[in-house]
């Protein structure tokens, strides 16, 4: 029989009151596993909302330590955490928000050699990484292992996100094919971002994870949501699965994972 402690009933009361979440949806959240790759601008708010929602197990993957320049947007890390591993800083905050959550910190960068082992066993993955090579790697690995995930990217005042249901909806590679040429990637001086834009996008990704797990509404599949926070315009572009996609089509040309070139700005993240 479904049961909650008095404290859980009160903690999750605003979820339980929602008809499309309810008692059953909250139970699903408590029995689910979400992996957040990157404890940065997107991963920070995503992890905090997943924690608050009572996701049973939250994996956090990152190899970096907290730096002072992170604090303008990576709200899971505090000034006192400078120098600490991001995954440990994130674990502390997640447990402080909600002691019901089990946190699995993974101190690593995802690579072709380790990503399958890292994502294995999770119900949903949130891509909070900051470079194209890793975004394609996450896409390909999630498609191959049939794990739904949320893609997210931000730059300056802009954000974009889509949810991929492997083999069922358009994947990142259906739409973007391959990483952009180097001269199209912003240089250091162009790589600023408004802190709150990271919060907006990471929060959308968390909402997608919670919706996927509870079954509430429809996830952002076969669609790309983009926004520009300067005029605060949101746009949703319909997408279709590419029948010739290199990874998710019937006859994929990519059948094993390889590391792309890590073209990442040297600017301290």
């Amino acid at each position: 029989m479904i049961d909650f402690t008095q404290s859980q009933l009160e903690r999750y009361s605003r979820h339980i009151l929602l008809n499309s979440v309810g008692v059953e949806g909250q139970l699903k959240l408590m029995n689910s596993r979400v992996l957040i790759i990157g404890a940065g601008g997107l991963g920070a708010p995503a992890a905090m909302y997943c924690a608050a929602a009572g996701i049973g197990r939250i994996g956090v993957v990152d190899a970096d330590a907290v730096e002072v320049s992170n604090l303008q947007r990576q709200i899971i890390h505090f000034t006192k955490d400078i120098g600490a591993l991001k995954v440990m800083s994130a674990k502390d905050k997640i447990e402080a928000i909600n002691p019901d959550v089990t946190v699995e910190p993974v101190r690593a960068f995802v690579q072709a050699s380790n990503i399958e082992g890292i994502i294995d066993g999770y119900d949903f993955v949130i891509d909070g990484t900051d470079n194209f090579a890793t975004k394609f790697l996450i896409n390909d690995a999630c498609v191959m292992k049939r794990i739904p995930y949320s893609h997210g990217g931000i730059l300056r005042f802009n954000g974009q996100t889509m949810t991929v249901l492997p083999k069922k909806s358009a994947c990142y590679r259906c739409v973007f094919h391959k990483p952009p040429p180097e001269n199209m990637i912003p240089t250091c001086s162009e790589a600023g971002v408004l802190g709150a834009v990271a919060g907006m996008l990471g929060t959308i990704q968390a909402a997608e994870a919670l919706k996927y797990i509870t079954g509430a509404g429809e996830v952002l599949a076969d669609a790309l949501l983009t926004f520009d926070a300067l005029p605060m315009n949101f746009r949703k572009v319909k997408l279709r699965k590419n029948p010739k996609c290199a990874v998710c089509s019937e006859h994929p040309s990519i059948t094993r994972l390889i590391d792309g070139q890590q073209i990442v700005c040297d600017l301290k993240k």
Binding site: M1, I2, D3, E10, S13, R14, I16, G22
Partner: peptide, 13 residues
């Protein structure tokens, strides 16, 4: 809203 939360839990049981 705990009134409704308690009723919803009971109805689920």
């Amino acid at each position: 809203p705990m009134t409704m939360v308690k009723v919803k839990l009971k109805l689920s049981q």
